[in-house]
């Protein structure tokens, strides 16, 4: 599988992502500067975590208007896999590739800790390596991960199986205390209609190495590699 990571000014989790992609695919991803207008031919485009443009104005808003973005959107529409993690998820909602918005965490604090996620749909190219309903543990690290969409949009997402990951406790219960940021319906990650664009707030790339505390995030990358 060939992959590319788009680098924006202020991106800071590209190293974590690159290390994981290399470990899973055996190939280092290409790093593409946001000022470019064309991506290389790849199977997966990653919009990584960080604070693009300092999160000024709104998280992901300025990055969503950078020169590379029209090509990211075009590739997404043509079926290339696109993964947006954290700040990347924020960019995907800002471009409109994914519905809704990520707002300030309900308690107004940045949160960095391991959370549990319930894999709600394994019939996707991003989650096929997991068991249905499997509970995985990965970290979050964000100040603006509070997923918001109107009720109609939320219902549509649920009805079409596009709520892929939800915050839960270690037994899989969708409780409010397990929800680190106040996201509606405990939503942690969603898919686009075509099923090739995933956005999620947690960092699976930071949980792919037993030395760093676990490997529950590996499945996501193995799924993509298998689908590509």
């Amino acid at each position: 599988m060939k992959s590319a990571i788009v680098l924006f000014p202020g991106t800071n989790r590209e190293r974590d992502m690159a290390a994981t992609l290399k470990r899973v695919t055996g190939k280092a991803p290409e790093i593409v500067w946001h000022g470019e207008t064309r991506l290389p031919e790849v199977d997966l485009i990653v919009l990584p975590g960080g604070f693009s443009y300092g999160d000024y104005l709104r998280c992901g808003a300025i990055a969503a208007n950078s020169p590379i973005m029209p090509d990211v959107i075009a590739r997404a529409n043509a079926g290339t896999f696109v993964l947006g993690v954290c700040n990347g998820f924020q960019m995907l909602t800002e471009t409109g590739l994914l519905p809704g918005a990520l707002m300030r965490n309900a308690n107004l604090q940045f949160v960095c800790r391991d959370v549990h996620l319930k894999v709600e749909n394994t019939q996707t190219p991003f989650t096929s390596a997991y068991e249905p309903g499997q509970v995985i543990r990965v970290p979050v690290a964000h100040g603006d991960g509070n997923y918001f969409a109107d009720e109609k949009t939320l219902d549509a997402l649920e009805d079409s199986g596009r709520v892929v990951l939800r915050y839960c406790d270690e037994k899989g219960a969708l409780t409010q205390t397990a929800n680190p940021n106040g996201s509606q319906r405990n939503i942690a990650g969603i898919l686009n209609e075509a099923g090739n664009v995933l956005g999620l707030m947690p960092h699976p790339e930071d949980m792919t190495d037993a030395r760093l505390g676990g490997t529950d995030g590996l499945g996501l990358f193995e799924s993509i590699a298998a689908a590509a």
């Binding site: 104005l57 808003a61 208007n65 800002e94 519905p99 918005a101 707002m103 969409a149």
Partner: peptide
Amino acid sequence: EKLLANTVI
């Protein structure tokens, strides 16, 4: 419409 506001929210 393009940048300053996110009209979703």
